[in-house]
Design a protein around this nucleic acid. Structure first.
Lengths: 176, 176
DNA sequence: CATCCTGTTCATTTTTATTTGAACATAATG
DNA sequence: CATTATGTTCAAATAAAAATGAACAGGATG
């Protein structure tokens, strides 16, 4: 087995947490990203993993995440899967080590655009489909109620258009 | 007890759902708002209530919501509380009826600004506080790691500023 | 003022989301 | 090619969120 290649600094840093403890800086970063992913409706473990990778100067493998975050192998594997799928994290090659090592990708743009495309857009699309069905039901309504209902539907239509107009703009803002 | 005052149309509409069933239009509206509130991390019941009120031509009281949505009194009460707190719903007076009757407020602006102020802003604030703590920890880091850590922190700082810059704009966009 | 009507609160139950851990697949190693 | 290391998947366990319903508070009503 070839010797592990590492800098003096990273060896020292690793040696400082022999039993996988977290530095105060790492704890803060993890907390920060936990609240961010919760805001986006993702499991806490995803935030923990990204937070630790974000704070870590060296790439980390799955077993390091497990050990340092007290997390099962399954959770770490699934969390990494999500983060990969969003482009928030990527694997880097580490010479002489079979394991996959991950680093946090600092460019939020990919993350934001994937999130919008996969999470927000589908909602808007299904909303649009629903509006069409509603227009259809509307026609069959007794005319006493039809007018009031039509006014409400127009409101919904307006909101939908506003949402659709905002997404691309929001995306550009985040990416910039 | 004074006679209930109602229009011919609303009496007819009410008569059409004697056992509290929902029209197809109402079902679509409810589904739409369920997915919206879920997106914002709120319980489904909140979406059900708003959806039904949105679709309903007449104001509805708590017991009507319970009956038509098959929802417990507690859930209806709490859902209305949330909706009131966001300004998404308001009570209207109905002559000769002791119960509180609610209508959906169609102006999303209040809702959006309350949501941003109560849900998003606190996250940004706690994030800012965390950044300060992190800067403090940074100073105590051995200098071998300090530079890499500082670069990461600068990235976070940048994101925070971007987020803070976006909120007011987003708000204006939604309100317009 | 006793009773009824309406709505709120909160301990308990139910439902849903997340995590665990063991079984499995795959690939590297000797 | 047997063994070991690594990572994934998924059924079961656990934790978290939401709904229920009974107890309660307050106000109207007769």
């Amino acid at each position: 087995m070839p010797a592990k290649i590492s800098t003096l600094a990273t060896r020292k840093a690793a040696a400082r947490r022999p039993s996988g403890g977290l530095s105060p800086l790492e704890v803060e970063a993890i907390d920060l990203f936990i609240s961010l992913v919760r805001l986006l409706g993702m499991p806490k473990s995803v935030g923990e993993i990204y937070g630790l990778l974000f704070a870590s100067p060296e790439p980390l493998a799955l077993d390091a995440l497990m050990r340092r975050l007290h997390m099962s192998k399954g959770a770490a594997s699934q969390g990494l899967k999500v983060l990969r799928s969003f482009g928030a994290v990527r694997a880097v090659y580490v010479a002489g080590d079979r394991r996959d090592h991950y680093v946090a990708d600092f460019e939020l743009s990919k993350f934001a655009s994937t999130f919008i495309k996969e999470e927000l857009q589908p909602h808007l699309d299904s909303g649009a489909a629903r509006l069409e069905r509603m227009a259809h039901h509307l026609a069959k309504l007794p005319k006493a109620e039809r007018e009031a209902a039509r006014a409400r539907m127009a409101k919904l239509q307006h909101w939908k258009e506003k949402g659709q107009a905002m997404l691309p703009w929001l995306l550009k803002f985040l990416v910039a």
